[in-house]
Simulated scan of single mutants.
Amino acid sequence: MQQVRGVVARGKGQPVSLETVLVPDPGPGEAVVQVQACGVCHTDLHYREGGINDDFPFLLGHEAAGVVESVGEGVTDVAPGDFVVLNWRAVCGSCRACLRGEPWYCFATFNATQKMTLEDGTELSPALGIGAFIEKTLVHAGQCTKVDASARAAAVGLLGCGVMAGLGAAINTGGVGRGQSVAVIGCGGVGAAAVAGARLSGAARIIGVDIDDRKLETARKMGATHTVNSKETDPVAAIQELTGGHGADVVIDAVGRPETWRQAFYARDLAGTVVLVGVPTPDMKIPDIPLLDVFGRGGSLKSSWYGDCLPSRDFPMLVDLYQQGRLDLDAFVTEEIGIGDVEAAFARMHHGDVLRSVVIL
């Protein structure tokens, strides 16, 4: 058992606090990871606001990279000293998705069995089964993916959630191919990563859509060939005009609102693909679209879970591309902050001032 500092959300809407957390020694299948860097994600804010569930108190943080300190019985894939990126979908290998050869859809992902606690014994709920705004965290060993140890932790740790979600929405879920046209609605952290993913995939025309000119500038830096401010211009008409009147081959909704999903539906070409990667709130409904339009336009309407990634396959590949200078993960790191600065980072995120604040430990 170790005592370390961690960022805890004790109640709905309450400011987070820096607390002493007790981290158990790893049991069978578990690992303790010394966290080096962890991104501040919107999902952490959703946890603090009670938007995920009400299992307070939460140990926040999940976009992390660090070094394995110790492992429990039966762990063979990682060892002490390995540099790893943490993931929240440790595949089981035996559920119906895994057995049919689609482990990225695993329906029985693993988390650590033991609980980290406060000093008084109160059990903590780790964000997405990780909890990485902390000096050391306990996770299932399958949540650790070994990558190139020379990579910058602040950058590659972002593959643990938002950046992977966006990259994967384009590469994996959307299946963007060479020469295709892609539109991305919403160019925050996830949307900007979707733009980067479309560029990696060889898309010929990449259209970034947002209401914030700062985010559109980011989209251009990530590889967008065109941008549309949807506060000033009808995005559906603009995307169609930029694609010969047809619509884009793939449209990615990185916002997750009924109105943006509707825009994505009508901004795609016949037989095109819509990918929903922005996370809606529980009260949101599919917009009123005639069923005949769904039938008549053909194509695919997809949801992207974590960019449909398989960490063991995708993380090392993307880190290698980063190391080669072909994927600019550094561009997603707006600022590096201390572990006591998370609450202030939430405020900057809310105002759209950052792509990612990254806690350095």
Results as ranks from 00 to 15, higher is better:
Gly202Tyr: 07
Arg220Val: 14
Gly272Tyr: 06
Asp288Thr: 08
Lys221Met: 12
Gly197Leu: 11
Gly298Ala: 05
Gly244Val: 09
Leu242Trp: 07
Thr260Trp: 05
Gly189Leu: 06
Lys285Ser: 13
Val277Arg: 09
Ala267Gln: 04
Ile289Tyr: 02
Gly189Val: 08
Val228Met: 07
Gly247Gln: 02
Asp293Ser: 13
Cys187Glu: 00
Pro258Met: 08
Thr260Ala: 04
Val250Glu: 00
Gly197Gln: 04
Asp293Pro: 00
Val236Gly: 02
Arg199Phe: 11
Leu242Cys: 09
Gln180Tyr: 06
Pro287Gly: 15
Glu241Tyr: 04
Gly186Asp: 00
Glu232Lys: 14
Glu232Thr: 09
Ala271Gln: 12
Ala238Gln: 02
Gly299Asp: 01
Ala237Arg: 14
Arg220Asp: 01
Leu291Thr: 07
Arg178Gly: 12
Ala203Lys: 05
Glu217Ala: 14
Ala193Val: 06
Gly202Arg: 05
Arg199Trp: 04
Thr227Ser: 08
Ala204Thr: 02
Gly245Val: 11
Ala264Thr: 01
Ala271Phe: 15
Gly208Pro: 01
Arg178Tyr: 15
Phe295Ser: 11
Thr173Ala: 15
Gly278Thr: 01
Asp269Gln: 15
Ala194Asp: 01
His246Cys: 15
Ser230Leu: 08
His226Trp: 06
Gly256Ile: 05
Phe295Val: 14
Glu217Lys: 10
Gly177Lys: 14
